[in-house]
Design a protein around this nucleic acid. Sequence first.
DNA 1: AAGCTGAGTTTGCCATTCGGACTTATCCTG
DNA 2: CAGGATAAGTCCGAATGGCAAACTCAGCTT
Lengths: 153, 153
Amino acid sequence: MANSASSARRAPVPVERCGAARALDVIGDRWTLLILREAFYGVTRFDDMRADMGIPRSVLTQRLARLVEHGLLTRVPYRDEGARARSGYALTAQGRALAPVILALMRWGDAHLAPDGPALAVTDRAGRPLKVALVAGDTPEVALRDVVLTPLV
Amino acid sequence: MANSASSARRAPVPVERCGAARALDVIGDRWTLLILREAFYGVTRFDDMRADMGIPRSVLTQRLARLVEHGLLTRVPYRDEGARARSGYALTAQGRALAPVILALMRWGDAHLAPDGPALAVTDRAGRPLKVALVAGDTPEVALRDVVLTPLV
DNA sequence: AAGCTGAGTTTGCCATTCGGACTTATCCTG
DNA sequence: CAGGATAAGTCCGAATGGCAAACTCAGCTT
């Protein structure tokens, strides 16, 4: 960008007014982003998340509560046959709006840290590849509900 | 996405093979992402970053070293008139490739956490607005060097 | 030579995280 | 109804990591 070419002495916007910095206040730690990754994958249950991520229970409890408090997740009661009612966690619209962040991370990680190639293909329902990218403001966006994730081998 | 609609019990890809999770190993902490934000803004000097972010010296030293080690930043010697040579830090190609992540965070933060509206306009050189979004795989991307950031008000 | 400055490094304290054990609520089986 | 199973959550001591402030160091200016 204009600024990273021409080096500046100070940021054009102070941290407390920067959208990115504010976002990081809410989701800027390791576990929180991994939890959102799980949520995008559709994992909703406490112990399923724990099994996927290996996160300590106490940390997961605390992070889920924080995400609910900030309105990125919402509690969704569920009940298995023969079990008592419990609460799962699902993304709200605000949480789903973070999809580009997660997918951009995934794209970068796959491109730079995956000698074995991407683990997941991101396409629309017709199988056409999708990507998160910097594009003209009037480019039509693909809705999250039309995204299909296919594990590769 | 297909998966967040239909809730899954487990993630389709284990953490250690997921590009997003791998990316988080490298950049998944609060300070690292803020440092990259500074780098995108074109801030290259240790003490300038410190002044912008309020990060402790020891942490900044450690994070910069880590980012250099992972190849996202590179040391660029500079010398002010009448001062000795020092080293600044500039993004490598790999580091610049993270722009969509930062810009996606910024877009989300501006949309959901900025009652006062965005602090920065993201446009191309002709002033046309840009965005980071989920789009068809063949959509042309805007190169980072053509991006202009304009502080608002 | 005395002092300044940018860029660190070191130190000692404090907050957070870790992981394992414990708790709770509810359901099922007998 | 007693006993067990289980998902979700709490508690706790030990370890890790973050923090501010003091210290270091090289080379510049006076």
